[in-house]
């Protein structure tokens, strides 16, 4: 193939006049980490609540959680982001929509992406938590009830400690997915890792290197995430307990 491979261009001044290409890419890398981790924390908190609600015996909460999960898990993330960013301000009363559109640009983009990504990921987290709870023998919950625990106490002391341990491995995959999913941010102009590598690829005339850089970046994130989750898994293991 007739291609001029060179990594040196990364350190040359960028055509945008804002430092070198490697600075641009690192900037994108930073956005990817920031939005993904924040969205993950929100999604974790909200998703756990939803997952628990899905296992409750009947009630409004359970129906809401089920509807929510189906709605957010079964529509493409890209479509959801489009709705939040382009359609929502048109549906709101005009004054509200205009406020949204004229607020600080980057803040508006970041908030929209965080909202979209965490609501979407929460639905995924909820399913993993629900599966974790469902995989426990029903006797666990009933035994807790028999011992006089209320619903909240049964979940808090008996069901959830076991369910979380079971849900950890699938949650690790979900964590990795958040980082990859965060690439949708570029569709509304927030230049994260994928967005900046596309930009750099166009400006520098070195598309392969730019995308290789992004690949290595995502790989690094995934490896670190897997490593951290593995430590958490090992630390939270109850010695002598059999994994169900």
């Amino acid at each position: 193939m007739n291609y001029d491979w060179s990594w040196r261009f990364l350190f040359g001044p960028s055509l945008t006049g804002e430092g070198s290409y490697v600075v641009m890419l690192m900037h994108g890398f930073g956005w990817t980490i920031l939005i993904s981790l924040t969205a993950w924390l929100i999604a974790l908190a909200f998703g756990i609540a939803l997952g628990v609600a899905r296992t409750l015996p009947r009630g409004v909460l359970r129906r809401f959680a089920t509807l929510y999960v189906h709605l957010f898990r079964n529509t493409p993330l890209l479509v959801q982001l489009f709705l939040w960013y382009f359609v929502l301000p048109e549906w709101l009363p005009k004054a509200w929509g205009d406020t949204l559109k004229s607020m600080n640009l980057v803040l508006n983009q970041v908030l929209t992406v965080l909202l979209c990504l965490s609501l979407y990921t929460a639905a995924k987290v909820a399913e993993h938590v629900r599966a974790g709870i469902a995989s426990l023998p029903a006797g666990q919950y009933r035994a807790a009830q028999a011992l006089g625990f209320g619903v909240i106490a049964s979940y808090r002391h008996v069901v959830l400690p076991q369910a979380f341990r079971i849900a950890l491995p699938p949650l690790t995959s979900e964590l990795m997915n958040v980082f990859k999913n965060s690439a949708v941010a570029m569709t509304i102009g927030l230049m994260e890792l994928t967005g900046t590598s596309r930009q750099v690829s166009e400006f520098s005339g070195h598309p392969f290197e730019a995308f290789a850089f992004a690949t290595l970046g995502y790989m690094l994130i995934a490896l670190v995430a897997a490593r951290v989750m593995r430590v958490i898994e090992a630390r939270s293991r109850i010695s002598g307990a059999t994994q169900t």
Binding site: T16, G17, G195, R198, E202, F203
Partner: peptide, 29 residues
Amino acid sequence: VVSSGTTAELALRKLDRERGLDIEIMLAK
């Protein structure tokens, strides 16, 4: 608004810098 990664983006940034127009540049995919 300008499409990111295009020559138009570069031209707009250059114009903004050279003439100090303080344009808020939005990027579109």
